[in-house]
Design a protein around this nucleic acid. Structure first.
Lengths: 269, 269
DNA sequence: CAACAGTGGTTCAATATATGAACCGATCGG
DNA sequence: CCGATCGGTTCATATATTGAACCACTGTTG
């Protein structure tokens, strides 16, 4: 692995829950030598990807990210478009809505929105969604490029008892998703979370990402699932439209069978 | 220079005006070998800092930046706080307002806001503000840590005929800024731009950044300068307050002498 | 107070890693 | 069909990265 990659892998260790990290702790988190980590941090600091809290000497993410993110958003204005749909989705379902994008062979978190309705909420604090264990990942397998299957099978960690780990199980999940138009994960990534996901497409006409609702398992019911699906269809159409894509006909057909009235009424403009 | 730094320096080459760059062009822009650049891009792509347009094979900034920027903004929520003040400042002055932050020994662009009032506007498209040639930089020299002077003198490129390049000239500019409470740069970075800048402070009590107004030179006048200064004082107070800092008394005194009525009336809460 | 465990940061020899000239196949325009 | 350009690859060279040991400092604890 290149030293560049190693240095860049330090950055996702900073999270909202752990925004400042000292040198020693960062070494432990990254599992690397102190000198190595220090040199990497120096390089990251010289380019403003991290900065040091002058009081505590701990490192935190730097100002360069703000500027680059704004350029990225101008280049590919997906986040802004998704966020409006997410807010509505969270409001309509009372659960946490989020959007992930496919980059290479990885589903990457783009934005999420929690509903304030309940005191218990699902917090999306991962940046990469495992393909085999999350609803977004299953949607990617079902509607994305075939090569994702190899990527998924290369890493089938069992997060819970319900995590599918065999190729047969994964193919069944993907097949279900293609038939229904929704990726689903029931307690397969975390024991308390059940998620449903719909694919989103961009101007290339290809699978670009997924919009999902992650519900606290104790609140989950067939009624809630049905409501989530109804609103996911709207959200997927909205985001797909704003990303310059269209919903493939076979997907509209699948949706029409699951939620006939809604799908029939709201045809994409 | 470390290869990590070299790879990271590729990222600022992507701008809103040039959002996608092919391998060869990127080599020319970075002034580096093709293999080197290619390997760096591979590392950046594997960590989602860039991605490839699947159609053109050109590279663009990647989705990881969005996530990291949101964590940065949660960690140090400066951008959101500054933007409200910038919008008002742009509105009040009819010119382009921007905020830069000090990270290490560099003034880094955080946010900017153009006024729609005039067809000619100053566009802030640089990410690093030269300490010796910009109003923000002069403010940093005047109100920031002393070590910035060495950093400024280490790189005194003459951007225009008016760029101060000698230590004596720089010290005079900084002295002026301390006396008046404003950093100023009159056509010293670009021939058509005159800027005035006020320092901003954070919870450490130290200089944290600068808020500036960059005016098209042909519109500049003493009346405009006076109006800009009045509104800069408000903006600096507002941003400083939201960043958890306070305006030092000596600065309030300097401002009170320049704009006596305004400074006397609006004392910081 | 003194020993200790923790921190951030530095040194230097060993070597793993980055580098760049040359090359390849594909594509484009004349 | 040619030359120019593109993205990407190969391989010997040599440069930049690495990690054990070390240093100075700080806060804790018996």
């Amino acid at each position: 692995m290149s030293s560049v990659s190693k240095a860049l892998e330090l950055l996702p260790l900073f999270t909202a829950a752990r925004p400042e990290i000292g040198l020693s702790q960062l070494c432990r988190l990254a599992g690397r030598d102190k000198t190595t980590t220090y040199r990497h941090l120096q390089a990251l600091e010289s380019t403003f990807f991290v900065e040091q809290n002058p009081l505590t000497k701990a490192y935190r993410l730097g100002p360069a990210l703000m500027h680059l993110a704004s350029v990225r958003e101008i280049t590919v204005p997906r986040k802004a478009a998704a966020q409006a749909a997410l807010a509505r989705l969270a409001e309509q379902t009372g659960e946490t809505a989020h959007v992930s994008v496919l980059s290479g062979e990885t589903m990457y978190s783009l934005a999420s929105c929690e509903s304030p309705r309940h005191a218990t909420r699902v917090i999306i604090d991962i940046t990469v969604f495992p393909l085999h264990a999350t609803a977004s990942g299953i949607a990617a397998l079902a509607f994305g490029p075939d090569r994702l299957f190899d990527a998924a099978l290369a890493n089938t960690q069992a997060f819970t008892e319900a995590t599918p780990v065999t190729e047969a199980a994964l193919r069944r999940f993907a097949q279900d998703a293609r038939a229904t138009g929704f990726g689903q994960s029931h307690k397969s990534y975390e024991d308390d979370v059940q998620s449903i996901s719909a694919p989103v497409f961009d101007q290339t006409g290809l699978f670009a990402g997924a919009v999902s609702v992650a519900a606290v398992a104790s609140r989950f019911s067939t009624q809630l699932a049905s409501r989530i699906m109804t609103h996911l269809i709207e959200a997927s159409r909205q985001i797909t439209r704003s990303w310059g894509g269209t919903i493939p006909p076979h997907l509209e057909n699948a949706w029409a069978q699951i939620v006939p009235d809604k799908a029939a009424v709201e045809t994409p403009s």
